[in-house]
Design a protein around this nucleic acid. Sequence first.
DNA 1: AAGTGGTCTAGACCACAGG
DNA 2: CTGTGGTCTAGACCACTTG
Lengths: 235, 235
Amino acid sequence: MLKYQQIASEIQQDIEKDDLPQGTKLPVLETFMSKYKTSKSTVIKALSLLERKGLVYQVRGSGIFVRRRNRKGYISFSNQGFSDELSEFDITAKVMELDIRKPPEDVAFNLKIHPKEDVYYVRRIRYINGQTLCLEESYYNKSIVTYLNTEIATGSIFDYISNALGVKIGFSDLYFHIQKLNQEEAQQLQLKKGDPKLFVETIFYLNNGVPFDFSKVTYNYQQSQFFFQSTGHSL
Amino acid sequence: MLKYQQIASEIQQDIEKDDLPQGTKLPVLETFMSKYKTSKSTVIKALSLLERKGLVYQVRGSGIFVRRRNRKGYISFSNQGFSDELSEFDITAKVMELDIRKPPEDVAFNLKIHPKEDVYYVRRIRYINGQTLCLEESYYNKSIVTYLNTEIATGSIFDYISNALGVKIGFSDLYFHIQKLNQEEAQQLQLKKGDPKLFVETIFYLNNGVPFDFSKVTYNYQQSQFFFQSTGHSL
DNA sequence: AAGTGGTCTAGACCACAGG
DNA sequence: CTGTGGTCTAGACCACTTG
């Protein structure tokens, strides 16, 4: 782990351990420099990371202050996409379908592959604290995600991909829509036809820019409470 | 403007001017260093900024590549909050109410003021390309936003606040919910009761951490297409 | 092995907030 | 004016990808 990440992580832990309230001033840079025996630039880099994560805000000429989330029960929506801190919630999944097939046209387009190439198709229902959270349909480029089974898909597929397959996940594009549930979706989410839904299409890329997963997720509107922290000025 | 911002801006313009496709490799760092007569660190800082903005992705040991937005008609949702690039759309507003009043309890709480202090209350309907985009109710701390009138509120209130009042806007917290429209909202958005809505509560802070605006916005689900780019690894 | 991006440092200098 | 955060530099060194 890089030094500035390590420092950021320790400062974050200190903030959380002491449960510092919003607006608390952190020590001056000099303090961190000597505490971690490092240069000013590295300390600033660590703190900038925390600022982007929404943990602190920096006021030039004044100091660095703690920024806190004020509401509970929201799914955080940081730059990792969702489920950054799934640990806060109890998330489980039930696999409805899993097979190898040829991708539909839109999927092939988004994954930038030929419609003749194989993809893994997975359909799951995911639960949060025992309630239906979402319906998920995912297509994985089989030449990248070389193997998948029901047991794996019951847990976190991404953990499996990055840990077991050694594939490095990069960035993603998310497209959000608000729509109405159709009959089938309503039934699976235990809601009514015509009820609201959040529908998200996501393309996940490897760190070298190759798309490997295209997924369509329909969220239960009753569980769809999201939280997002903006940092304003382009850091 | 800072040097690294200037460089980032110029590189961005070059990318857009030449309409470089996704995956195009940018020149190596050395090229930028001599072109802008600057140090390696500064070039990296500029490119990291562009990476966070979703314009490029960096692959260690390989190069820096262009990343592009693939779909049109989505409202971008960068770290500035929404309406980063309102220029892409034609956004107008109709002011329904504007007055000075005492804040309801939840508003006072979120603005961290006493319920006896004055706030500006503004209710607007905003339009995008002539269609109803959202209903907006905003409360501004009057001790910070000292003056407001209907003419100002017809345009961009934030432009007015930052330019005319010289107030420096910092960061914001956004809370998203998916809900159903009630009768009154449906009527104003020209939709039906029970139709989906995206409901967003936002607290805006000054750059020194003081909250100055609390707003509740109800979006027309038919216009609610948002786009978000995740950068994955914590930059 | 060569090329390329990225970290880290030490120090000069700048920009802003607040008394 | 002082304190504090932030930029910028030059260069050493490291980590990853590609051939």
